[in-house]
Structure formats: structure tokens, C-alpha cells
Amino acid sequence: MRNGSLVRRRQLARTLRELRVHAGLTIEAAAPLLDFSPSKLSRIENAHQGVDVHIVRSMLDLFDVGGDRWTEILELTREASAKGWWRAYGLDDRGYVPLEAEASTIRDFTVTYVPGLLQTADYARALFETSFRRRSEATLERDVTVRMIRQARLTSAERPLELFALIEESVLHRPVGGTAVMRAQLARLVEAASLETVTVQVLPTGIGAHPGIDGAFTVLSFEGLGEPDMGYVEHPMGAVHVDKEEDVTRARLVFDHLRTVAHSPAESVALIERVAAQM
């Protein structure tokens, strides 16, 4: 069984909404037949409220769903309700990690630091230690551990995660954690670039202004789940999920353009190795 997450809940919510519409029922008509208020049914159909298999069985009966479809939807309900591995580390289902756990492809553009999926533990720890967000030693180590666990999917045989990492050249020269930590981090980038699932490209400083100069962003794709791509942007006050189609499409176009003006993967690796040798 796959880990439950926002993506799975959204998939279930969309399915239940489509079944209601196909049954010819409005929310106002269906809700009292399920002993719900219209607002509760609306929350369920928008993935703002979870449901268990008992509630879903009642909905499937009302919408006259049976056979294999019945079994598939109940299994999806169980998957959407399952606790993801991140819950054991004190994280909830509303952040970035649950989205990444269901993604098939990540397009990550970073302008100030190495992408989290390619960070060494020491590099990640140095970033966390300089954050204004106060962390106890235990919380710090937990966050580093979570970041390392996430990276396992890059080499997973069962559910590999494909990563396209686009990194501003200045990131290579910023000695996060000191020279030794940074040298090891650059070596990690070179090592990761050799994986079939990872493509690393460096955006040269010399190109000047470019469409991504406004800041870093991530686009997540969910092949096989029927979910549209999502965007994710971190900022000093928190983070935001972006699911408006035109915004996500624009982000993909910007990313694809930046890849055309960035160093090729081979040139990028050579540059990273030169920077490391000069440290």
C-alpha cells in the first residue's frame, strides 16, 4: 500500500465528485441522503475533509457503483487514509514531503542552495542551523533525517523519482558549512548526476537576467495518478502550493527555457568538478 497524502485525498475527492455528478445528483440533493450537511459533502469533494471506508461505502451505494469500480475506490480510500512515513517524524500531511512522496517527476530550480534531494547531511544541517526558525537539537537531527530519507527514491527500484535539478552557478561558490562541507557537497552533486534518475544543470551567471530571476520554484508531476502538475514555492514567511493550471504551465515553460540556456549536463558536471578542485 502506498502512503496516504494530499495527492491521494485529492484523487479520491475528485472521484467521489465525478460519481455524484454522473448519478445526476447535486450536492444539495445528495447530502441529506447521506445524513450530511451540504457543506460537509462539499468539504469531502474538495479534499478538505477525510473520509473512511464506511462513509465511502454509503456514497458508492447511493451513486450505484459496484463491481471492480467499488473495490478500486475502497482501496483508494484506504490509501488516502494511510499514515505516511513522515508522520513518524512529526510532520503532517499538509507540507511538501507528502506531495513529493507521490510525485513521479520533480523539476527543481534553486538559486541560493543545493536542492534538498541532492544535499549531504552536513550541508543540510548547516542550512538548518542558520535558519531563523528555532530548532532543538532533536528537531534539527529529525529534519536532517527526513531529508536523507526523501533521497532514497532517487535510487528506488520500485518507485524511482526522476529529478531535473537546475542550479544557479552562484550556489556552487557559496561555502555553506565551510570549505570541507562544501567540497563534499559538490562531490555529491557529481555522484548524483551519474544516476539515471537525476539530471543536473548549472545556470551560468554570465547569462544575466533571465525569466527565473524572480526566484526558486518546484514543479511536481504525478504520472499515472490522473493528477495535474503542481507548483511549490518557498519564501521567508512559509511556502505555498500552486495548482492553478495557467500558473503551473508558466512555471514549466520557464523551467524548460532555463534548461536551454543552462550548461549541458556534461558541462555542468565539469564545472562543478572545477569549482571543487579550486577549493
Rank of each mutant, 00 (worst) to 15 (best):
N3S: 12
N3F: 14
G4E: 05
L6W: 06
R10V: 09
L12G: 05
R14H: 11
T15G: 03
R17Y: 11
R17H: 13
R17D: 08
L19K: 09
R20L: 01
G24S: 06
T26E: 08
A29H: 09
L33Q: 15
F36W: 15
S37C: 05
P38H: 01
I44P: 03
H48K: 15
Q49T: 13
V51F: 04
V51R: 08
I55F: 03
V56S: 08
S58G: 14
L60R: 06
D61R: 14
L62I: 03
V65Q: 02
G66C: 04
G67D: 05
D68Y: 10
R69D: 11
T71D: 13
E75L: 13
T77M: 10
R78H: 07
A80L: 12
S81C: 06
A82H: 11
W86P: 05
W86S: 06
R87L: 08
A88P: 01
D93E: 13
R94A: 13
G95K: 09
S104Q: 09
I106K: 00
D108R: 02
Y113D: 06
P115S: 09
L117Q: 04
Q119M: 03
A126T: 06
E129K: 03
S131F: 01
F132E: 06
R133G: 05
R134G: 02
T139W: 02
E141V: 01
E141D: 14
R142A: 03
D143I: 01
R147K: 14
R147M: 00
E158R: 12
E158K: 12
A165S: 12
H173Q: 03
P175N: 11
P175G: 05
G177F: 00
M182L: 14
R183C: 02
A184F: 00
A187D: 15
V190K: 01
L195I: 08
E196R: 14
V202S: 05
T205H: 10
A209P: 04
A216G: 09
T218Y: 08
E223Q: 14
E223F: 09
L225I: 08
G226T: 03
D229G: 03
M237D: 07
H241C: 04
E246K: 10
D247T: 02
R250C: 04
A251R: 14
R252N: 11
V254C: 08
F255N: 05
D256G: 12
H263C: 00
E273P: 00
V275I: 15
